[in-house]
Amino acid sequence: MSTDSPIARRLANVKQIILVLSGKGGVGKSSVSTQLALSLYALESSPRVGILDVDLTGPSIPRMFGVDEGYDVHQSSAGWVPIYVDGAERRLACMSVGFLLKRKEDSVVWRGPKKNAMIRQFLSDVRWGDLDYLVVDTPPGTGDEHLSLMEHLAPLQTRLSSVVVTTPQAVALTDAIKGISFTRVVSLPVLGLIENMSGYVCPCCGEISNIFSTGGGEELAKRENIPFLGRLPVDTELVDLLDSPAAAASQGDSSDPPPSFPLLAHYKQTPSFTLFSLIVRKVADALSPPTSSISESAAGDGTLVSEP
């Protein structure tokens, strides 16, 4: 067995791999990854999307997609079958260490070498099939998981890119700079920076409070010379939705046909969806240069009507 073949072979039909990075924890990597996957999924071209959660000691992706209970990964002769979260369409596949735990409160207490082996297994054994985008949610920091990912994905270098997430306060920005310098060291292209949790709108009086201050991300992007993808305020509707997608789904607000993919239907109603679809345009355009001419219209009305 040559060193690169199993992973390269497995991911041969994956067109783009997007790593979601941030130096600091809790800035919203998982929620950005989830939104990125959902918004890419909602593009007109109906791409096939995969999401891989490599946060081994604190997986959040299963909860955010509402598949944290009673879902097991099945092993077939061709590898591990990911969990399809979009019902019958089977265009959105999801894989996380959370699916492998017997009880969800079990802790995964692993040192580096074991984490490395797990990541390699995720990359070489999961039967993704054809994917247009594979979104990889990473743990905070620049440690074992990140180095292992880059090592194993090295043969696929041309299809790799990354998105850096930060919150606007100084403490998070210093960590984001570390994340950016990581991408430089391993020569990983950066599609851009997203400033998350930028301001909170009081539901009572509408006053905007900058809980974690604001604008720091954009400044940082300018200084580090990377594209700034956008600013996302704290959206309580989104927080609620991703925290308990099952509860949101059961509310089923009297709409006539039950949506086939309730999470996406609900997500489209949040203010974040509108903002995020602008970001996704930029991401999709950056990844496929020929269609970049649409980006101008995206800023106008185009994105709001993406799908009824």
Binding site: Y200, C202, C205, E207, S209, I211, V234, T236, V239, D243
Partner: peptide, 18 residues
């Protein structure tokens, strides 16, 4: 909980759904 500096109303940003 978050107390709005404008109107002093407390709202929950991260709701304790469980």
């Amino acid at each position: 909980g978050f107390v709005c500096p404008g109107c002093k109303t407390e709202s929950k940003i991260f709701k304790p759904t469980t």
